[in-house]
Design a protein around this nucleic acid. Structure first.
Length: 582
DNA sequence: GCCGTTTTCGGCCCGACTGTTTTCAGTCG
């Protein structure tokens, strides 16, 4: 059974939203939000903690601990049920539209009876918001655009949520009697940034016990299809999972078929037809005799087509089949090639874990180097000061001795201002081992201004990495508008790496933009942007995205040995390497 | 609602942007 922390987090966040919508105390609302975040980041499973232990979680006091305990014991929360009765669920859903917060959501409900995003879109199109204070033409236009962005993600779930569901399903099915193999296929195996249906593939002589195990999963709220070879279930949140069971001898062919993409499958089937073969999920066959040529493993199937095995993340019909035929397929960077993380936070700013805990978790991952990059002062809410970050540096230097084999880098995540300037002058930046610089504000500058500010940041000799360059948030915020080719050219020219941010709601750069940047000769840093020890694991999604962008170890600076990384960070003409640097 | 080497009460995350209510409320990071 999965950890219940996320479930409790969702409950507390809902309660916090309802406090805001009903005009409750803003500090109380924030207290619930803070507690929700802390629960999510807490190392232990909350369902194993009593009310007393729950209070050990920072931000969780008596009242919230009792509520969590009540919910875990009874499955209900009386206080929440009471508030829910006053506010239809659709009103909270309105807040998912950018530019709509609790006040506007409640106004729409109270004044116009609007209680869902669909009703809101209709009301705007039918001009029914006319005369409603705070909803002028510009606002209405922004709301409609926001709804479009949200719909673009069309019921798809983020990679981490899909991964968690798939792992639970695979574990359940694999434990069924007679199951020989079981794995996730489809877009999840290809590490697409969002997942529609989750495809689970299994091999067994007798599919029946597997189907029974699948429909009995706790996550299966509803059985949509129940057949001998294929069964589909839906979670309470509406995510659909499909299980296909194949005969064991067809495992490889089935895996190729159900991993896709559809376009990739079309491409390789064309090759099969040219070779007088037929390719299906049951194998690669001689078109005339019907003899099976290959089916057991993916390698055999591709080899039967005259191709090397193609890594799943590349199977998007972006030229990988042609590259494979020419023998020019890249060897994509693998998770175990990552030697360190170059963008992480601690509780000095908005992280949840202390510096020693984050460093300890990095050491446990076997990293050779690790950078701490807390927020700089221009992100006002973080209240950073020179004194605080220098004190942290002293602490980092002290910790360095305690983890042999792990080089600690003291860095910061700077804010790229509208003019391309950053928080601190060069004299102060020179003291950092590494500077990430990211856009956190002024998302709506025009294209020229965005391009100029990013290029200016690249030209800052102390900036080593541009963090989450487009600042998009999947499903909720489009990226900034900039001439990416001009920015990538500047990155390549100045020796500034571009980040592949592994946070599942960012994955920024996205795969297509990575492919573009790579053509400019840009180097990359694949980072977790972790705000808790658990989020260091988001590196896997960053690596998956890097693979989709065809990146190799040579492209990714944090796969390099420490000496090569140091040469990149402190190349001549960039910054002066102090003696203490790696 | 949480929290405390100044506090068990009185603070708590601050500033910018946006559209529009022409003096500011709401939203966002």
């Amino acid at each position: 059974m999965a950890r219940r922390n996320e479930e409790v987090e969702a409950l507390l966040l809902e309660y916090a939203d309802l406090i805001a919508i009903t005009g409750g105390d803003a500090f109380k609302q924030r207290a619930y939000e803070r507690a929700a975040r802390a629960v999510r980041g807490h190392a232990a499973d909350v369902s194993r903690l009593g009310a007393k232990d729950l209070r050990e979680i920072p931000g969780v006091g008596k009242s919230i601990a009792d509520k969590i305990d009540e919910y875990l014991r009874t499955g209900r929360l009386a206080a929440l049920d009471e508030t829910r009765a006053a506010v239809p669920p659709g009103v909270r859903q309105l807040m998912s539209v950018p530019s709509l917060g609790p006040k506007k959501a409640m106004t729409l409900y109270r004044e116009r009876g609007i209680a869902s995003v669909g009703e809101l879109a209709d009301a705007i199109r039918e001009n029914r918001l006319k005369g409603l204070a705070g909803f002028g033409p510009k606002t209405q236009e922004n709301i409609l655009r926001g709804i479009e962005v949200a719909r673009g993600s069309g019921g798809r779930v983020l990679l981490d949520a899909a991964t968690a569901l798939a792992e639970e399903a695979v574990a359940g099915v694999a434990a069924a009697p007679g199951c020989e193999r079981c794995t996730a296929a489809g877009s999840l195996r290809r590490m697409r940034e969002t997942i529609g249906d989750i495809d689970i593939l299994a091999a067994a002589r007798d599919p029946e016990p597997l189907m029974a195990a699948f429909t009995a999963l706790p996550l299966a709220a509803e059985v949509v299809v129940r057949g001998r070879r294929k069964t589909s279930v839906r979670t309470a949140a509406g995510v659909r999972l499909d299980l296909r069971v194949l005969p064991p001898e067809a495992w490889g062919a089935g895996l190729v078929y159900f991993t896709g993409s559809r376009q990739h499958n079309v491409r390789i089937r064309e090759i099969a037809v040219q070779a007088k073969l037929k390719l299906s999920e049951y194998g690669l066959f001689d078109a005339e005799t019907g003899d099976r040529r290959a089916a057991g493993t993916e390698e055999e199937v591709y080899a039967g087509l005259g191709l090397p095995w193609i890594p799943p993340a590349l199977r998007e019909d972006r030229g990988e089949v042609a590259a494979a035929r020419r023998g020019e397929l890249p060897e994509p960077v693998a998770l175990d090639a990552i030697r360190g993380d170059l963008h992480t936070h601690t509780d000095l700013t908005d992280g949840l874990a202390s510096l020693p805990d984050m460093v300890g978790a990095a050491a446990a991952r076997g990293y050779a180097y690790y950078a701490v990059t807390d927020h700089a002062p221009d992100l006002r809410m973080q209240r950073m000061t020179k004194e605080k970050i220098l004190a942290q540096r002293a602490e980092v230097r002290e910790l360095a001795g305690r983890h042999p084999g792990l080089r600690l880098l003291h860095g910061t995540e700077l804010n790229i201002g509208p003019d391309g300037g950053v928080d601190w002058p060069g004299t102060f930046l020179a003291g950092f081992d590494l500077c990430v610089a990211s856009v956190h504000s002024h998302f709506r500058l025009d294209r020229d201004a965005q391009t100029r500010r990013l290029i200016a940041a690249c030209e800052n000799p102390y900036v080593n990495v541009i963090g989450h360059l487009t600042t998009r948030k999947i499903g909720s915020r489009a990226g900034i508008d900039a001439d990416l080719d001009a920015v990538f050219a500047a990155c390549a020219r100045t020796g500034t790496a571009v980040e592949v941010n592994g946070h599942p709601n960012r994955l920024d750069l996205r795969d297509e933009d990575i492919l573009r940047a790579r053509r400019h000769g840009v180097k990359f840093a694949v980072d977790s942007d972790a705000h808790s020890t658990g989020e260091l694991g988001n590196m896997r999604y960053g690596v998956g995205t890097a693979q989709r962008g065809w990146l190799t170890v040579d492209d990714v600076i944090n796969t390099w040995p420490p000496e090569r990384l140091a040469r990149f960070l402190h190349a001549p003409g960039r910054t002066t390497p102090p003696g203490t640097r790696p």
